[in-house]
Design a protein around this nucleic acid. Structure first.
Lengths: 195, 195
DNA sequence: CCAAAACATTGAACTAGGACAAGAAATACA
DNA sequence: TGTATTTCTTGTCCTAGTTCAATGTTTTGG
């Protein structure tokens, strides 16, 4: 089980690639181990990486002017994390933080290495476009849930989608992801526990 | 001012294309006029189009099992609308409705014509990937606003982003987009009106 | 192994926003 | 032009979720 097997499988899910193409992909990725509680992107910085998670867990979050913190994404095994809020293509600094919650093994693209990939093996444009479609679909579903569902239903849906996370990350992070207070999540869980 | 000037300008914003490439793009699009209050995609149908709005306004919305309706997007001039909830790539039927709110002039892709575009002029993969990035960034911002802001702030932000919409669409649609009740939006507006 | 810090639970008081109802205003269309 | 329908407003009462505070529990790291 080498470093690249997960990413190669994941990227091949919707478009199939030759051994040569996957070799190009792998050669352009940087393997990096990042200890837990490392902030990989601070507010105001430009995000100069896109990371594929081999192992570990990362959170991406906003903090607005009023100090409100909202977790936008948990990136676990086999998912990607980056700040895509215009910054990469519009050269504007980011309002986003990206922080490891566990020790992580990552594969990293810089904007340059990704461009190089597309130059050397243009069919990856397609695979990354499809990944992006899925990402957008997931975000839209989440928006719908956030608006239309009660806290109980949101949490049940969350458990469905991320069954291992309650054992892996602090509960108040999950509350922030769901858009409810940590205290209320605790009450929600108590209510669910006694059927 | 021909039918294609807006889409050509919009698609050229981040990647520049030759006259020949734009001709290929234009030849693959179908121009269609759609009267107001037409439902272009019903729940359970597969979405077989991607529409660029030359003129008019379209809403895309979910209705869940409990009858809860949430507007996911207003598509106005120079924006795209389609149902991307997996359905295109996973061949699953959609939970989404797409409905014109005004008489519309559209340019339409089918999945086939879009594939053909990418085959004949692969550099469009890149432009559409960037459009998708922007779309995702907008959706994420909206998720943040929905979670972190009060109804008053959400409405003010909405006015900023869509200054013409309150004059164009019924207020309860805006309420649904913001995730608040129509009655409460009315109260929010009253409060804003008297400073 | 212990102290400090971070995290989780519970309760009480409060509030943003919802649901319902009834009337007023605007729009559609015959 | 007038009537029907849709939309908007306003008020009253209600509830899901918040805030604050106090207490208990778990994790961390020296």
């Amino acid at each position: 089980m080498d470093k690249y097997s997960q990413i190669n499988e994941s990227i091949s899910r919707y478009v199939s690639f030759s051994k040569e193409e996957l070799d190009i992909l792998n050669s352009l990725l940087e393997y990096r181990e990042v200890p837990k509680k490392t902030i990989m992107l601070h507010e105001g910085e430009m995000c100069n990486f896109e990371a594929f998670v081999i192992k570990g867990c990362i959170r991406k979050y906003y903090i607005d002017a009023g100090g409100q913190e909202v977790i936008l994404q948990f990136a676990i095994e086999n998912s990607w994390v980056s700040d895509i809020s215009f910054s990469i293509y519009e050269n504007r600094p980011s309002h986003t933080f990206i922080e490891t919650l566990e020790d992580c093994e990552l594969l990293i693209f810089t904007p340059e290495s990704k461009e190089e990939l597309f130059k050397k093996a243009p069919r990856f444009e397609r695979a990354f476009r499809i990944l992006l479609y899925r990402n957008l679909a997931v975000t839209q579903d989440r928006l719908f849930n956030t608006i239309a569902k009660t806290a109980v239903d949101k949490y049940l849906e969350f458990l469905d989608h991320y069954p291992t996370l309650p054992q892996r990350v602090a509960q108040h992070y999950i509350a922030s992801y769901l858009g409810i207070s940590a205290e209320f999540l605790s009450k929600v869980r108590a209510k669910i526990a006694k059927h």
